[in-house]
């Protein structure tokens, strides 16, 4: 497959995913690496690599996405570029993974730049909305989101894929071996950033210990994730109902306490 064909396929995948998620179907589902990488792998003729890279990229991007409206790295473009690069050049997946985050970071700033730019047409949307033409409003919104909004990202994507991959490959081949070792180490440590963001979002003193339970279950007991999810769900459900009954009890006690107070008042 020529680089140009692959660049076109990659750009189309980018475009379609960009429109499907978040505009048309779901939020943070179709545009996750675990979905994109296998799909792109299938189109580029190496399904297996796509699937395996999807798993690895999803681990990296699990926490690095849409935190409080700020997206530090764009998972979609990073996945498209790193999967195309790996499949086209036949490099090992680790190198592909290592270039994913820098590309994602660049694309995230491109995206947020345009996101701010589009604020400029907000007054126009407002005028259109109150004009009493609901179908026109819907149609214009659809055209904007499906056709105009993806253009800047897709352009960057296309040129990056068409000219970047070969350039990148030549550059990487010329590098001393320690750089590759460093890239590999960086990619396996960068995963921790995503998890750190995620953990600090849901961490609380009361339940933080469960992080280590999950860790030990895998590292020491060698359990698979579904089994851990089942055990975790059982703990969560038990906890929910126990706390619920405690809250109910507290309410009953308070109600009883109020009655008692009233009784005493009567007595005196």
């Amino acid at each position: 497959m020529s680089i140009m064909t692959a660049a076109v396929i990659g750009t189309i995948v980018y475009w379609v995913i960009y429109v499907l998620d978040p505009y048309i179907f779901s939020w943070q589902c179709i545009n996750r690496p675990i979905v994109i990488a296998p799909a792109l792998g299938l189109l580029l003729g190496d399904f297996q690599t796509g699937i395996i890279m999807g798993a690895a990229l999803e681990s990296i991007f699990m926490g690095i996405s849409a935190i409080g409206g700020q997206i530090p790295a764009d998972a979609l473009s990073a996945t498209v570029v790193s999967v195309s690069y790996t499949i086209l050049t036949g490099a090992d997946a680790e190198t592909g993974l290592a270039i994913a985050l820098p590309i994602g970071t660049v694309m995230a700033s491109v995206n947020s730049m345009f996101m701010s730019l589009w604020s400029a047409i907000a007054p126009y949307w407002e005028k259109l909305a109150v004009s009493g033409k609901p179908n026109k409003f819907l149609a214009y919104n659809l055209i904007f989101s499906c056709v105009i909004a993806p253009i800047p990202g897709a352009l960057v994507m296309f040129f990056g894929l068409a000219f970047g991959v070969t350039g990148l490959n030549n550059a990487l081949a010329a590098l001393p071996p320690f750089v590759m070792a460093g890239l590999g180490a960086a990619s396996s440590m960068m995963i921790a950033i995503g998890f750190a963001i995620l953990t600090s979002m849901i961490w609380s003193k009361e339940v933080g210990c469960f992080f280590f339970v999950g860790y030990v279950m895998v590292k020491i007991l060698g359990m698979d994730s579904l089994s851990i999810a089942i055990i975790g769900a059982a703990i969560a459900i038990t906890m929910f109902f126990r706390e619920k009954s405690m809250i109910d009890m507290k309410k009953e006690l308070m109600a009883a306490g109020v009655q008692q107070d009233e009784g005493e008042e009567d007595f005196f």
Partner: peptide, 29 residues
């Protein structure tokens, strides 16, 4: 008062899964 409880229970499950995934994927080589 169930909102806090719901969030807490959900984060127990969430934390366990994050812990499990840290164990499988994060590596200081």
């Amino acid at each position: 008062g169930l909102m806090a409880t719901l969030t807490k229970s959900a984060s127990v499950l969430g934390l366990m899964m994050v812990g499990a995934m840290t164990a499988t994927t994060v590596n200081v080589p």
